[in-house]
Amino acid sequence: MIDLFKKVAFWEGVSYLLLVFVAMPMKYLAGYPQAVRIVGMAHGVLFVMFCLILADLLRRKEFTFNFSVFAFIMSILPFGTFYLEGKIKSA
């Protein structure tokens, strides 16, 4: 389950960066709001998956409560999930 979590975390991080640094500028600078709808939906699905898997790992006691809170905070920071992956490898 941790391997799945790392994969989802990676793609959630990629989708977040695409949303913030590609789709949003396309919406506000180029007048193309469809970019945010498409990338935003993908990011939303990945974020929900991230949270559900994180909750399951906490329930199974594979992650501590403090680490789960840390992981959630990393998911809302740009580049945070990539930092999180390093923390998971070292844990």
Rank of each mutant, 00 (worst) to 15 (best):
I76H: 02
I76F: 12
G44E: 15
S90Q: 11
L4N: 09
M1F: 14
M49F: 13
L29K: 04
E12A: 12
A23L: 00
M74E: 03
F50R: 14
L46I: 02
Y16D: 03
V69S: 13
K6C: 05
L29V: 05
Y83C: 06
M26R: 04
M74Q: 15
F72K: 07
L19N: 08
S90P: 01
A35L: 04
A23R: 03
V22G: 01
L84N: 01
R59G: 10
K89E: 10
Y83A: 09
L29N: 08
F63S: 03
M41L: 05
F10I: 03
A71K: 06
I38D: 04
M49E: 07
K61D: 03
L58Y: 11
L17S: 11
L46H: 06
V8D: 00
A42E: 05
K87D: 02
F21W: 11
W11C: 14
K89S: 00
A35I: 02
A23S: 00
E62I: 08
F67W: 02
S15Q: 05
S75G: 08
L29T: 04
C51Q: 07
G80H: 06
E62A: 00
Y83L: 12
K87W: 07
I53A: 11
V48H: 01
V22Q: 04
E62S: 14
S90R: 15
